[in-house]
Design a protein around this nucleic acid. Structure first.
Lengths: 199, 199
DNA sequence: GTCTATATATAGATAGAC
DNA sequence: GTCTATCTATATATAGAC
């Protein structure tokens, strides 16, 4: 019987997983350039040589990390689609807000991937392909399943809704604007739903 | 008669202005941590000592830079408000899109201020106070001047519209998603306007 | 595979001449 | 005020023992 050498879910060697966890903590907190490999090694509890042995260099480690986090956090929300589109929208928005706002790691990941999109355009594009596009396509399909909404352009509507979500997260949470431009979550969701529901 | 020692508009010493221009180029391209003071000095065409003489340290230089850029780029658009709100919205959105999309420096500034909002929360907050909040307040006022829109919540509507704008800029331009999720600007504006205009 | 110790480059910041 | 030259710390990355 062989010894277990890889994680049953991620298929990763235990040491690699351990390194990645340390790397996530450091990179999410400080960004790419301000994170040193010394600190990653220390946080992960391994030596620097081990770190370099598993991931060739700093950029490769960072790529592996964003890939890992991008795959875990899919915005591909599947919720029931009740008859009333207003209820659907409110339920959907509330669920996705709660999920993201209770996941500070995801908020930091968003900041990171945006902030590094100049140096690492391919990573930002992977995020768009695997997360943003999937989520918007799913929402577009859902919107299209409600013909009574009489939407002129479902995809644009889906993008606007995602944009509203993003705006809230970016201003209130990521950029620390809560006290400067306070806005209650329920009021925001309510207003957004009413904007989409034309009656 | 005294020699002219400061810029007539910014009130800055010529050398300080020169340094700032070099700093803008470097910081916008590489972010805070990845930008070295050596490179800033070289790009600005001064020695490192001169640089430190004008701006005490790297963080102070960065703060001065974000303040400078934040004051120049106010999203406080004042356009005429025609009778038809649909025309107003379309004109407003088109103008602001054109302004921002033709200003790559502003796009990089957005990326920068978001990316560094972890290390420099106060700078992000200053940006929100001086740029985002002002712009949203102005738009809210404009929306309120059209009672025929019968908006349930003008401020939320203004935020959603700004969010739609931001989403487009972020996905298409800043994160290089143009080829992955193509979307024509006019189609997007059209759809956004139709969403707000309930008829 | 994992460690300690180290090589080499470059960072932020300053001293001292002019 | 501005420069050249330099200090000190720390960065990425690797060599070599085990």
């Amino acid at each position: 019987m062989a010894k277990r050498q890889s994680h049953p879910e991620t298929g990763m060697a235990p040491k690699a997983e351990q390194i990645l966890q340390g790397a996530i903590e450091e990179f999410l907190a400080h960004g790419f350039a301000a994170t040193s490999m010394d600190r990653v090694a220390k946080t992960a509890g391994v030596s620097k040589a081990t770190l370099y042995n598993h991931f060739g260099d700093k950029e490769s480690l960072f790529s592996a990390l964003t890939e890992y986090l991008g795959e875990k956090r899919i915005l591909d929300f599947v919720i029931e689609e009740p008859e009333d589109p207003a209820i659907f929208l409110k339920t959907w928005a509330t669920a996705i807000f709660n999920q993201i706002l209770n996941d500070p790691e995801l908020l930091c990941f968003l900041r990171l991937i945006i902030g590094e999109s100049g140096r690492f355009p391919e990573l930002a594009q992977a995020f768009i392909r695997n997360v943003v596009k999937v989520g918007i396509n799913r929402l577009t399909k859902s919107l299209e399943s409600y013909p009574q909404l009489r939407l002129a352009d479902a995809e644009v509507t889906a993008r606007v809704i995602m944009g509203a979500l993003l705006h809230y997260l970016l201003i209130q949470e990521i950029m620390h604007g809560e006290e400067i431009m306070p806005m209650e979550r329920d009021r925001y969701i309510e207003g957004l739903v009413k904007l989409v529901i034309t009656d």
